[in-house]
């Protein structure tokens, strides 16, 4: 895992997120446009959000592991109003929020938004893939519709 910026710089870079020692690897990954999900070195199970131990076997030997970013929409919300963000303009229409079930493991989910997708296509079951946008000058993981063969 890259430790190119120290903890203070990491907190500075993501001042809009509450980061702690259990979650810092996730956000260091974002800076490299890599989605890192905690995986247990002993039982190989993933979990999210990041915890200090593996909830399946209590091992504290965890590796933030890059996932494919492929998955399907499991939950959806269209936010008609909500917290502010520089890339979100509620006046232009609702902002989609989606929980993606990642292909690596059943019920392993990551919540973000979906881009390049008409609102009427934002629906449960839609295959998506990871993409990155800029938010407050740092990469931010989002999803977009995925072609399936």
């Amino acid at each position: 895992m890259s430790e190119r910026i120290d903890d203070a710089a990491l907190v500075e870079r993501f001042s809009y997120i509450r980061i702690d020692h259990d979650t810092k690897h996730l956000y260091r990954g974002w800076l490299e446009e890599r989605l890192l999900i905690n995986r247990c070195d002993d039982c190989a199970r993933f979990h999210h959000p990041p915890k200090p131990i593996c909830p399946s076997c209590w091992s504290s030997s965890l590796t933030p592991t890059q996932v494919s970013g492929r998955g399907v929409i499991h939950l959806t919300i269209l936010l008609h109003q909500g917290p502010p963000a520089p890339d979100v303009d509620y006046a232009k229409g609702p902002h989609p929020v989606v929980s993606i079930e990642l292909e690596e493991q059943e019920a392993l989910r990551f919540t973000s938004t979906v881009i390049d997708c008409p609102l009427e296509d934002v629906r449960i079951g839609l295959p998506v893939e990871l993409a990155w946008i800029d938010r407050f000058g740092a990469p931010f993981p989002v999803f977009r519709p995925r072609e399936t063969s």
Binding site: L75, P83, V97, S99, I124
Partner: peptide, 25 residues
């Protein structure tokens, strides 16, 4: 509230809407 949550934060209030979508589905 301290740090303003992200629009994509799965906080409890938003999560009820998310699970409502699942219920409808």
């Amino acid at each position: 509230m301290g740090v303003t949550p992200l629009p994509e934060s799965p906080d409890p209030a938003a999560a009820y809407a998310a699970w409502a979508s699942r219920y409808i589905h």
